[in-house]
Design a protein around this nucleic acid. Structure first.
Length: 850
DNA sequence: TTCATTGCCCTTTTT
DNA sequence: GGGCAATGAA
């Protein structure tokens, strides 16, 4: 974020009079408002005072800082309902943006419940991208597109960039297209045109040709009449800047702007919102020439494509205020790595002078232990707006947050599995249970275990339906029928199924098309009239062209699902998979059927294609009772009765790369992620760490996460686990937890001191960013689950220690698993075949001779 | 064109 | 260690 941004006034120095909004609603509206004041409508009655304030503060900018589980969505939806039912705006005058389709869908449903039919008329409720598409379809020509432009997904983009890299005569090995796609994405998140990217960035790629390559990419997109996801935001920004009259039209249109998850907005989204929420000063010349923009130095009108901007000053007649309301939680900002600017939320009051800030701190989700743990953890972050969640529901029965240690990830998975089975026996629904991991590779172990146990699970956020090869192939056919200029689609399927149109043919065709500046399909229909291709290829291509011509004519006459089926049939695509005898072929055919089925819900093939471009996920069956396994990132916004948080180890969580690349702020984002994880839990939260984890195929001894140190002892209980605390020799029957202070004395033992030393050395060596860290460790040494974490670490070292006092075959007793025979010994780790509990790995400190 | 070998990556992910 | 993608040989 550039400096000097702060002092750019967001609104006119003198905001329009507040009553303006109500006045435009007319007398009826005012009367309705008055009536509503007198007798509160139902929908307001269930709100707490802060929520109500957030709902009723309809005029002027509002920032709602909504902590986890404080009824954020409720406030948003009720606010919209309130605006509508008090007659302050028509549904079409409300702009409500979310980040995900899921959030948009949910909002729509919930507003529907509150106000009934009116939601149908809320055309501007959607994701940033879907609203961007809507704007662009209307004004495509202003940015050099036609309104039937296609939206490319990341896969298309990478393929396209690869072509460009090769066209530049560069080595596509040395300069991976994927990497460059990522760079473009980053630039676009920041709202940067090719001319505006930092010199260093531009030089870093493709022998210094980064900027040229980016520009070439943008040109290619225009030729293809296509957009990538970033363009869905940037084109509208360009369009508004270059066409103040169009912007003015929308200023007149949107009375109320609502933004969900404001902490996740990136710079481009911020600029987009700013344009829409800001009314230009009367004296100000066209928007793109404003001093603010010059200083910002970001998106300018595309010089060669955009029409000349009018020099007219904007006539700012007396207009009603645009009322923006942003809802978010700075503590849940976890998408910094993909361009989100927490700053946007931290800076809100400066951006929107006179903004009302409302904090929602009353939590309706979690027990006080869970909240206490989460709050204490997140308090270690600096630069927060500072909220403290509280709950009024206290229950002595509530469990503390559990911290468990395990020897390795396998044991971790096994123990979690057991715990889930126990919950299941107590009639807990699996749907209420989630395992939230830091990185997706952690999922595998749990999946394996659950398969063995026969425990239902669902992985959320895996490879998506629309990303599957067969679906993308089929979609490419449909796209090409609807949009003959879609060269990427053409190249994808021209030889799928195999038609003998290999690289050489496609290359020839490609060159032909480029030379004449026409789409490849058009080039194909020309080239088959010439003798540039060999007879065989020409015949094949002739058939392809004929097919597409036929399908295009059918587009208007045949029902789209029927046509889709026909296309897959006639192209030989279905036949291709039918002939395939590999294991996944039947599944793919099934997916294709599913694809056709899902088209039924749409009016036309075009409508369907648009949906798929924007909504990459397909609904999955929620009917099954199953444990959810997902990453912490995808868990945001969800809640579960019981949450397992495995893998709290240094290097994994916080992730090493976050520390290396993000430094202090990287660490803080990791901590927010931990906060998000804990606050997903309603009743039970189990945190795990292991002593050994396999990373990149190598077993590594790991240290417990520093986040464990940052949990408050008052709300945390370190669970007694059969393994992993092996060095911890204490008699059975006298639990540590029988004592008032379970950690009594333990931090004075030589073992603890040794471990602490080891630990601080390790951390000093590995993390320069930790220099100031000891300050953060509240209560280190006096309280906190230090002992156990340390013991867990000691175990890792103790494997090579003295020989075990047991021998293979010994009969032993374990307090939890009962009697068994030792099957194997590795250091102090025993593998024991228990009579009743089966084979377990246990540390020898926990068994005695039977 | 297909299969096999080799090499490379390995945090998080929406649209 | 393993999965995937690209390359090279048959």
């Amino acid at each position: 974020m550039s400096k000097g941004f702060d002092d750019i006034p967001f609104f006119d120095e003198e905001p329009a009079p507040r009553q303006a909004a109500a006045a435009t609603g007319g007398i009826a509206a005012r009367a309705m408002a008055a009536r509503d004041k007198a007798q509160r409508p139902d929908y307001l009655s269930g709100l707490n005072p802060e929520q109500r304030e957030a709902v009723e503060a309809l005029e002027g900018p509002v920032l709602v800082l909504a902590g986890a589980g404080t009824g954020k969505t409720r406030v948003l939806t009720t606010r919209i309902a309130h605006i509508l039912s008090t007659g302050r705006a028509f549904p079409s005058q409300i702009l409500a943006v979310t980040f995900t389709n899921k959030a948009a869908r949910e909002m729509k449903e919930r507003i529907g419940v509150l106000v009934g039919h009116a939601v149908e008329g809320m055309p501007w409720l959607g994701t940033f991208h879907s609203i961007g598409v809507k704007l662009l379809r209307r004004h495509a020509e202003l940015v050099g597109l036609r309104s039937d432009f296609t939206i490319l997904d990341t896969d298309d983009v990478v393929r396209l960039i690869k072509q460009l890299i090769q066209a530049e005569g560069l080595d596509d090995k040395r300069w991976p297209a994927k990497q460059f796609a990522g760079m473009i994405d980053t630039w676009k998140n920041k709202g940067l045109d090719p001319s505006q990217i930092p010199e260093g960035d531009a030089r870093a790629f493709a022998n210094g040709k980064g900027r040229e390559l980016y520009a070439a990419y943008q040109n290619r997109l225009l030729t293809l009449n296509a957009c990538d996801f970033g363009d869905l935001l940037l084109h509208p920004i360009r369009m508004f800047r270059a066409n103040p009259d169009v912007l003015k039209e929308y200023h007149g249109k949107f009375r109320y702007i609502l933004v969900d998850e404001y902490q996740d907005t990136n710079t481009a989204q911020y600029m987009w919102l700013r344009l829409l929420a800001q009314r230009p000063r009367p004296s100000e010349r066209s928007a793109s020439a404003g001093p603010g923009d010059a200083r910002q130095g970001q998106v300018a009108a595309a010089p060669d494509r955009a029409p000349p901007r009018s020099g007219d000053s904007v006539s700012a007649s007396k207009q009603q205020q645009i009322n923006i309301c942003c809802v978010g939680d700075d503590d849940q900002s976890i998408y910094g790595w993909r361009g989100a600017e927490v700053d946007n939320i931290l800076r809100f009051e400066k951006d929107f002078p006179g903004a009302k800030v409302i904090k929602l701190e009353r939590n309706y989700r979690s027990t006080e232990h869970i909240l206490g743990a989460a709050a204490h953890l997140i308090a270690h972050n600096e630069g927060r707006l500072g909220k403290t969640l509280f709950t009024e529901r206290t229950n002595p029965e509530d469990e503390k947050v559990h911290v468990h240690a395990a020897w390795d990830s396998e044991e971790e998975a096994r123990a979690v599995g057991e715990e889930i089975e126990q919950l299941q026996r107590k009639n807990h629904k699996l749907n209420d249970i989630a395992i939230l991991v830091r990185a997706s590779f952690q999922m595998r172990e749990f999946e394996d275990r659950f398969v063995t146990l026969g425990l239902n699970y669902r992985v959320i956020g895996g490879p998506r339906f629309y990303e599957r090869m067969e679906i993308r192939d089929a979609m490419a056919y449909f796209r090409l029928v609807c949009q003959p200029a879609d060269d990427l689609a053409f190249e994808r399927i021209v030889n799928t199924p195999k038609r003998g149109l290999g690289d050489t043919t496609v290359r020839t065709l490609h060159d032909y098309a480029r030379a004449r500046d026409i789409p490849m399909l058009a080039a194909a229909s020309e080239i088959i009239e010439t003798d540039e291709l060999k007879a065989k290829a020409r015949k094949s291509l002739f058939d392809v062209v004929a097919d597409f011509r036929r399908w295009q004519t059918l587009l208007e006459t045949t029902p789209h699902t029927e046509l889709a089926e026909q296309i897959l049939e006639e192209s030989g695509y279905t036949a291709m998979w039918q002939a395939d005898k590999s294991a996944e072929a039947p599944g793919r055919l099934e997916n294709l059927k599913e694809l056709i089925r899902s088209m039924e819900a749409f009016e036309s093939m075009r409508g369907f294609l648009e949906h798929v471009a924007l909504v990459m996920d397909a609904e999955q069956n929620e009917n099954m009772d199953a444990v959810s396994i997902m990453t912490l990132h995808s868990a945001k916004g969800l809640e579960f009765s019981t949450v397992f948080l495995p893998g709290w180890e240094e290097g994994l969580f916080p992730h090493q790369r976050a520390l290396d690349e993000g430094g202090r702020s990287g660490l803080e984002e990791e901590r927010r992620l931990a906060y998000v994880g804990i606050t997903r839990a309603k009743h039970r939260c189990h945190i795990w760490f292991v002593s050994n984890r396999r990373i990149h195929g190598l077993w590594q001894s790991t240290l417990p996460s520093r986040f464990l140190d940052e949990l408050p002892i008052a709300h945390v209980e370190v669970a007694e686990q059969e393994a992993s605390y092996g060095g911890y020799s204490r008699g059975y029957g006298q639990s540590r937890f029988d004592k008032a202070d379970p950690f009594e004395n333990s931090y004075q033992t030589p073992g603890w001191k040794r471990a602490q030393q080891h630990r601080s050395e390790a951390t000093r060596d590995n993390w320069g960013t930790r220099s100031g860290h000891s300050v953060e460790r509240i209560g280190y040494g006096e309280s906190g689950p230090r002992t156990r974490t340390i013991e867990g670490e000691l175990v890792a070292k103790s494997t090579t220690a003295e020989p075990s006092r047991f021998n293979v075959g010994d009969r032993v007793f374990h307090i939890k698993f009962g009697n068994g025979n030792i099957a194997a010994i590795e250091g102090n780790k025993l593998t024991i075949d228990f009579d009743r509990a089966g084979q377990k790995r246990v540390l020898d400190g926990f068994v005695e001779r039977a």
